[in-house]
Amino acid sequence: MVPYLCCIILFLIGIYAILTKRNLIKIAIGFCLLEYAVNLFFALIGYKKDALAPIYTNVSQSKNFVDPIPQALVLTAIVIGLGTTALLLSVAVRIYEKYKTLDIKEIKRLKE
């Protein structure tokens, strides 16, 4: 329960960055934190006390493994996170080139 809650707190820190920070890079950092929080949460779900990593080392080994599915999912999620972060940052770079600022409040040509 407590580790889960720590993930939720990390999630909230990410939300905090996205919501209150005005710097585009800070917002991207917020996203990374969000992704870590969710990935971590996923990985913790699969944890089984006193179990081993799901790798057979010899055939006669006992089958007390942690849940392999969340690990597989998190593997996908990590890569997806990398993709979105890269895209977000590339847009941020281009915005800096065009607007000469990273302040999100200055970037408001589209309104109404």
């Binding site: 996205i18 979105t84 847009v91 915005i95």
Partner: peptide, 26 residues
Amino acid sequence: KEDLEASFKYQVIGEVGGLTILLAIA
């Protein structure tokens, strides 16, 4: 200029949604 701005805002809001969905899936 405007395209990038729109895309950035779209990404931020869209990804908040996407990650919430992922949290719910977890």
